[in-house]
Simulated assay, not measured.
Amino acid sequence: MSEIVLFHHAQGLTEGMRAFAGELTAAGHTVHLPDLFDGHTFGDLEAGIAYARAIGFGTLLERGVAVAETLPTNVVYAGFSMGVMPAQKLAQTRAGAAGALFFDACMPVEEFGAWPEGLPAQIHGGLDDEWFAEDLDAARALADSTPQAELYLYAGTAHLFADASLASYDPAAAGLVRERTLTFLAARG
């Protein structure tokens, strides 16, 4: 089975994030779920982003990288929205990564250098998500340039649609995300 480090989104380590990690654990995977916000959670995205800005995105990125230093190298790096930032950096720069899972975000590959040859990835985003719309070109570029990268787009979904603790939760789309994620992880483990 796979070992995963899963980084939370800007609303913090919500119950929905814990539930998602729990589903992966129940399937036999080992999930590390670092809290980059030191226990703070937010009822809306804007408040979480304001908190992240106050801490500094560079500091959050450093916290995520520091977590990975305590783990084996052959892990899958995963992140939701803001959490894609450390996940993608680690996937692209830490030797031995087993895979990458990006939910609700994708940064341009050039941000962290080149995409490692043969590194598999899945990107999940909503077609109606105004936040993901900003990242859609980067997601398509990664999927088009990397044979092992898959891009899944979900119609009618809002940002963070796979977090069951948020109003934006879409059970049908979240079910597809879980199914595809578990298939991806089973192939890595």
Rank of each mutant, 00 (worst) to 15 (best):
I123A: 08
P147W: 01
M85V: 11
V65E: 06
G125C: 07
A97G: 15
T70L: 12
W115Q: 05
A91S: 12
L142C: 01
F103W: 15
D129W: 00
P86C: 09
Y77F: 14
A167S: 15
A164L: 08
F103K: 12
H124I: 00
A87L: 10
F112I: 10
D128T: 00
A87E: 05
D128N: 12
R63W: 00
A68T: 12
D163F: 09
A91K: 10
E134G: 05
V75K: 04
D135H: 15
M85W: 08
G113E: 09
V76D: 04
D135N: 15
G126R: 03
A174W: 10
D137R: 13
F132G: 05
A173Y: 11
A164M: 09
R140T: 11
E150Y: 06
A105G: 01
G64L: 06
M107F: 15
S145P: 09
V76G: 01
A98I: 03
E134V: 05
G99S: 01
A158H: 02
D137E: 15
L119W: 00
A66W: 07
V76R: 02
L71K: 11
C106I: 02
A143C: 02
A138V: 06
E130H: 15
S168P: 03
T73E: 14
E150Q: 13
S145Q: 13
A114C: 04
A68V: 07
V76C: 06
A167R: 13
F80T: 04
L166E: 06
S168F: 03
Q88N: 08
A162M: 15
F103S: 11
E150N: 14
A167K: 13
A114D: 12
L151C: 07
F102G: 05
A174K: 11
G99N: 02
F132S: 04
E134K: 14
E69P: 04
S81R: 00
G83N: 05
V75W: 10
S81P: 04
D144V: 10
K89M: 14
F103C: 10
R140S: 02
V65C: 05
G125Q: 08
A164V: 07
T70Y: 08
Q122D: 14
G126V: 01
A162W: 07
Q148A: 11
L71A: 09
D144Y: 10
A95F: 12
P116Y: 05
A167T: 13
L136I: 12
T73Y: 06
F103I: 14
V76E: 03
D128A: 10
G64T: 03
A172I: 11
K89I: 07
E111R: 14
Q92D: 06
K89E: 15
A162D: 08
S81T: 00
V67S: 03
V84H: 01
D170N: 13
K89N: 11
P120L: 01
G83K: 06
M107Y: 15
M107V: 13
Y77G: 04
A98E: 01
T146C: 14
L127D: 13
P86F: 09
V109G: 10
D135Q: 15
A167I: 09
L90V: 05
G125S: 07
A162F: 13
L153F: 00
Y154S: 06
G125N: 09
L160F: 06
V67A: 03
G113A: 06
G156F: 02
F102E: 12
A139G: 03
A121D: 01
F102M: 15
L119D: 01
